[in-house]
């Protein structure tokens, strides 16, 4: 079954504070949707709502669970520090390399990020991948590896929802880019068909982002 998730008029409150305000979106199989927003905009909360880790205060989350795998990665800081990298990868049926017998807590940030992503992407069936700032801490080779892996997953029928502050990385892989400011989806840029001219696309996404942040 094709992975798909949809939020309809979803609002999430933490006490009195509105973290996500009346958001409607869908992530379909075979597409990569990017999420951009300033710090504190609610990106992580939105991703966690999409992944089913948080419950919406109001609104609906629709996901085809039957036969669909949902993989969420919240960044290297969310990995359990007491588990060895080798064991963590084995848990997700990934063969580990020679550098991974140490505990995750003592590894460098970039290595932890890579191990976490390796585990998350270790799924054969078409899945919904929800990734929070996955390029953070990766070196250029790691960034390239991740972009290629996401593009490959998309071709295999996966649905990918990914947030990042690195607009140039998002522009490289995304079909659509959503902008979140103060908990509201403020704009959507269609990136499809512009891949050949990545620089102008990146510049346009930056332009939209700056405009929205100034307005907020």
């Amino acid at each position: 079954m094709a992975p798909r998730v949809e939020l309809r008029h979803v609002t999430k409150r933490y006490g009195r504070r509105v973290a996500i305000d009346d958001v409607t979106l869908a992530v379909e199989a075979g597409e990569i949707v990017g999420l951009v927003g300033p710090n504190g905009a609610g990106k992580t909360t939105l991703l966690r709502l999409v992944a089913g880790l948080l419950r919406a205060t109001s609104g609906q989350r629709l996901a085809d669970h039957a036969g669909t795998t949902i993989r969420y990665f919240g960044g290297e800081r969310t990995l359990p520090p007491n588990v060895s990298a080798r064991r963590w990868l084995a848990l997700w049926s990934r063969a580990s390399d020679s550098t991974t017998s140490r505990r995750l807590g003592v590894l460098s940030r970039g290595t932890r990020q890579r191990v976490g992503l390796d585990a998350v992407l270790a799924v054969g069936a078409p899945a919904l991948f929800v990734l929070d700032e996955p390029w953070e801490g990766l070196d250029p080779a790691g960034s390239r590896w991740l972009s290629d892996a996401l593009t490959r997953k998309k071709r295999e029928g996966a649905a990918v929802f990914v947030s990042s502050h690195r607009i140039y990385d998002l522009a490289d892989v995304c079909d659509r880019c959503l902008f979140l400011v103060n908990g509201r989806l403020s704009a959507e840029e269609v990136a499809r068909g512009e891949r050949a001219d990545g620089d102008s696309l990146t510049a346009r996404l930056y332009g939209t982002f700056n405009q929205l942040v100034r307005r907020a």
Binding site: A51, G52, Y72, L79
Partner: peptide
């Protein structure tokens, strides 16, 4: 801290 995220996501 997110340690159980991979287990709880989409469940």
């Amino acid at each position: 801290r997110g340690h159980f995220d991979p287990l709880l996501a989409g469940r």
